[in-house]
Design a protein around this nucleic acid. Structure first.
Lengths: 231, 231
DNA sequence: TCCGCAATCTGGTCTAACCAGAATATGGTG
DNA sequence: CACCATATTCTGGTTAGACCAGATTGCGGA
């Protein structure tokens, strides 16, 4: 039951089955039979889900959905696995991500090394190529933003942001299907790069604020409205 | 091999053994024998460690220390388990935590509900009692800060901050052994509460900045200096 | 209707295998 | 002595079957 092949489907099944049964998941033996694997495999997967606080295992009773909200580890896993997240989680994640990005721009302006600048230049150059060929920016956008976080020289900060990028990865592909948006994003990236290079923390963060305003709002607009977070 | 009893010791053993062997951990069979449990138990534990990217399992070869830096999930687990973190991680975590707390104060000033205010008042009142009896603030400090994050009404934000608090929990107990610090912290808490109640975002965040300056610097000063982060 | 006991179910744990590729030891050759 | 091919051992991956004891459930009697 390696994560890369069965865990996502396994998790999806456990969750949907549990939700359809008042929060109680099928027994280990049932799950093993359903996926044609041994109980040992099932237990390994359940151990992981339990460690992420997605489920709760009660001895001699059963497997239950964890009551509290999922932590970031679970969110990142869900995103990576292509499992659905609640709208509330998306909204909140976008907000938190915004906070991080803006602060990262400020810090990066002060701490970025020549290596970071070189990496940013390389990403911008590759973006130009893509645009010249009429293609989308796609993952290069993420690379750009991630490099800025890397430029803060704070590994913990980087690992948090990486998790958030995983949450947004698939949704971003839709955004960058529009050529207009690609061009605009790229231009803004270049402006931000210039501000960072000039070590202008205030400008860097201000540019990031407006850069994110456009993309992020579109991002949350894609969500089907529900009662999660009316404000 | 429930997390609460064996996983910490198990992890500690795996890591130290691996570090003493060029990054390669003992075999599953050896680990099973060492802890007097079955291979199944060992594999469950290893699955969790692998999911947190602490280790890497290579089929038919062995178990190796993961090369990259640990994510926040691993950090929180290490902290909870009482396992040592690298100084670099502590430094970085403190910096990131600072960023979150300051932003949280700003957001909380705008979004805190009456329920949040009531909780804060309750914490302050209990702090007074503790101080009156000559006891330390201890966990009440954490409760206060966490309630502010909760007041942002952002669950994702909260789960991140919770993870960071776990990292600092033990170290904070030392800090609050000094009566003087307890009094000072409490007074600052009260000031912050007043600012929040007045919905003054700028003041709240400013007060938080100075509040954290004292505590946090002490916090990192406790670390034995090493080459991790000379700046 | 309600209570109590018995059968059943469930997670937790262990033993004993087999597989096939990786890692290593062996031995013979140039 | 150096080197390479082969045989042996080791390792993670996976399965099957079994036992335990508490939680759950269902049935039958009061």
């Amino acid at each position: 039951m390696q994560e890369h092949e069965l865990l996502p489907a396994f998790t999806a099944h456990v969750l949907s089955a549990a939700r359809a049964n008042n929060g109680k998941a099928p027994s280990e033996r049932d799950l093993a039979e359903h996926f044609s694997v041994s109980r040992g495999q099932v237990r390994e997967a359940l151990a992981i889900l339990e460690s992420m606080q997605v489920i709760e295992r009660r001895a001699k009773s059963g497997i239950y959905l964890a009551d509290g909200h999922n932590g970031i580890a679970a969110m990142a896993f869900f995103a990576r696995a292509g499992l659905p997240l609640e709208n509330r989680q998306i909204y909140e994640a976008v907000e938190v991500r915004k906070i991080h990005e803006i602060k990262a721009a400020e810090m990066a302006a002060e701490r970025a090394t020549e290596k970071n600048f070189a990496a940013l230049r390389d990403i911008l150059a590759r973006s130009e190529d893509r645009l010249a060929q009429g293609e989308g920016i796609d993952s290069l956008d993420q690379e750009f933003h991630l490099e800025i976080v890397r430029a803060t020289q704070n590994g913990v900060f980087l690992s948090i942001c990486t998790a958030f990028y995983e949450v947004g990865a698939t949704r971003l592909q839709v955004y960058f299907r529009d050529p207009e948006r690609n061009r605009k994003s790229h231009d803004e990236h270049r402006q931000i790069y210039e501000a960072l290079l000039a070590r202008d923390a205030a400008l860097s963060s201000a540019l990031m604020v407006s850069h994110l305003r456009g993309a992020m709002s579109y991002w949350t607009e894609l969500l089907e409205p529900d009662a999660d977070r009316p404000a």
